[in-house]
Simulated assay, not measured.
Amino acid sequence: MLFLVGTPIGNLEDMTFRAVQTLKEADWIAAEDTRQTRKLLTHFDIGTRLVSYHEHNKEASGRELIRLLAEGAKVALVSDAGLPGISDPGYELVREAVEEGIAVIPVPGANAALSALIISGLPTDRFFFAGFLPRERRKLHEELAGLASVPATLLFYESPHRVAKTLAAMREVWGNRRVALVRELTKRYEEAVRGTFDECLAHLEEHPPLGEYCLVVDRGEGAASTEEAWWKDLSVAEHVERYEEQGEDRKSAMKRAAADRGVSKRDIYNELLSRKG
C-alpha cells in the first residue's frame, strides 16, 4: 500500500497521531528532502528507513518504489511540508501505483493553501489552486490573463523575493482586487494581511517580505459582468489593439481580450479573421 502522509507546515503539533503511527509502521518512507524529513522522524522517534523521491530523481526512484510496493511493501510518501502531491511530483507516483493496482491511502494533515483560504475572509464556496506562477514577465502576464475570469477565489504560493512583483503584476492585469497575504502559517510569526492589491503593496513597502507566502485573491467579475467593463463598447479588433498599444504582442493581446470576454482565444482569432475577410 502507498500512504500519502500529511506533515507539519510549520508547527510540529500539526502532525496527527495517525500520521506518526503510519510512518512508524511503514517499511519505507519516500521523502522530498530526506534531511528535512529526518529531523521530523527524530522528533517523533520514528526509525523507518528513508529513501529520496523528488523532481530530479522521480523516474528512477519511482520505478524502485513501485517495485517495492508490488512486492508487498508499505511505503509512506511525504513532502517537505503539508500534503504530498501538491506542487510536487507525488501525483506521478500515485498515478503509477493506481495503474499497477496498488492501494493508495490518504493520511490527511495540514495544507498551507486551504489554511490560508479559510482565514482570508474571502469566499470559500469555490476556489482554484494555481500554485506557483511563471517567473518570466511575459509568461506571468499570459497566465494571469488566462485566470482573469475564473469564477472562484484564487490560491497561489509565492516566495518572499517575488511576492511584491507578483502582486504588482496581478494589479496590472486584474485591477485592484481584494487579496490576503498569508505567511508563516502555524509558526510563531504567522501573519495575515488583508486589503486591496494597492493596500498590500503599501504594506510590503513598510514591512519587507519574510517567509513563504500564500496569496488568496478575490474572484473577478468575469464575463457575466460586462455592463461596467471598460471594453464593452469596443469591437474585438479594437479590444486587441488596445492591449497591443500597451506593449503586448499580438498573441498575448488576443489572450487577454479572450479572458476579458470569457471566450476562447480561438474565438477571438476567428472574429479577427472574419473581419479581414
Score class of each variant (00 low, 15 high):
residue 199 E to L: 00
residue 270 N to R: 15
residue 121 G to E: 06
residue 82 G to Y: 09
residue 222 G to D: 04
residue 143 E to C: 06
residue 33 D to G: 09
residue 144 L to N: 05
residue 130 A to V: 03
residue 4 L to I: 13
residue 105 I to E: 14
residue 203 H to C: 05
residue 222 G to N: 08
residue 231 W to C: 04
residue 161 H to M: 09
residue 263 V to K: 05
residue 265 K to D: 02
residue 201 L to D: 14
residue 196 T to D: 12
residue 43 H to Y: 13
residue 91 Y to C: 04
residue 81 A to D: 09
residue 44 F to H: 10
residue 9 I to D: 10
residue 181 L to I: 03
residue 104 V to E: 08
residue 86 I to C: 10
residue 157 Y to A: 08
residue 17 F to N: 08
residue 142 E to N: 12
residue 131 G to M: 11
residue 144 L to W: 00
residue 260 D to F: 11
residue 55 E to P: 03
residue 68 L to A: 13
residue 17 F to A: 13
residue 203 H to W: 15
residue 46 I to T: 12
residue 174 W to E: 00
residue 178 R to W: 05
residue 185 L to M: 15
residue 106 P to S: 06
residue 113 A to V: 04
residue 169 A to M: 08
residue 166 T to W: 01
residue 198 D to Y: 05
residue 226 T to C: 08
residue 210 L to A: 13
residue 178 R to S: 12
residue 269 Y to D: 05
residue 256 R to G: 07
residue 232 K to I: 09
residue 222 G to H: 07
residue 269 Y to R: 04
residue 210 L to D: 15
residue 41 L to P: 10
residue 267 D to R: 10
residue 35 R to A: 10
residue 239 H to Y: 05
residue 153 T to F: 01
residue 179 V to S: 08
residue 37 T to H: 10
residue 60 A to T: 13
residue 42 T to D: 15
residue 193 V to D: 07
residue 150 V to H: 07
residue 182 V to K: 14
residue 186 T to C: 07
residue 110 A to S: 11
residue 40 L to I: 06
residue 159 S to V: 00
residue 132 F to W: 11
residue 101 G to N: 11
residue 123 P to N: 09
residue 187 K to V: 05
residue 13 E to F: 03
residue 106 P to H: 09
residue 90 G to I: 00
residue 226 T to S: 12
residue 6 G to K: 04
residue 256 R to L: 15
residue 259 A to W: 00
residue 52 S to H: 03
residue 157 Y to G: 03
residue 276 K to Q: 14
residue 222 G to C: 01
residue 206 E to W: 01
residue 180 A to Y: 08
residue 54 H to C: 02
residue 267 D to V: 06
residue 101 G to Q: 09
residue 92 E to D: 07
residue 63 R to E: 15
residue 11 N to I: 02
residue 88 D to V: 00
residue 220 G to H: 06
residue 160 P to G: 11
residue 125 D to T: 11
residue 65 L to K: 04
residue 196 T to L: 04
residue 123 P to L: 07
residue 224 A to C: 02
residue 128 F to M: 13
residue 94 V to G: 06
residue 149 S to R: 02
residue 250 R to N: 13
residue 81 A to M: 00
residue 196 T to R: 11
residue 78 V to C: 03
residue 187 K to Q: 04
residue 237 A to V: 02
residue 19 A to W: 00
residue 253 A to V: 04
residue 265 K to N: 11
residue 139 K to S: 14
residue 6 G to I: 04
residue 203 H to T: 03
residue 11 N to Q: 08
residue 215 L to M: 15
residue 28 W to T: 09
residue 31 A to G: 08
residue 59 E to K: 13
residue 46 I to A: 14
residue 9 I to M: 05
residue 25 E to A: 13
residue 266 R to F: 02
residue 137 R to F: 01
residue 177 R to H: 05
residue 42 T to K: 14
residue 230 W to H: 09
residue 211 G to S: 05
residue 274 S to M: 12
residue 34 T to N: 07
residue 13 E to G: 11
residue 65 L to T: 08
residue 207 H to S: 10
residue 258 A to V: 01
residue 222 G to F: 02
residue 37 T to G: 05
residue 45 D to H: 15
residue 266 R to Y: 05
residue 276 K to A: 13
residue 26 A to Y: 02
residue 197 F to H: 07
residue 54 H to T: 06
residue 190 E to H: 03
residue 120 S to P: 03
residue 198 D to V: 02
residue 137 R to L: 09
residue 65 L to F: 00
residue 260 D to H: 10
residue 265 K to M: 12
residue 21 Q to C: 02
residue 20 V to K: 09
residue 163 V to Q: 09
residue 172 E to D: 14
residue 78 V to D: 04
residue 107 V to D: 14
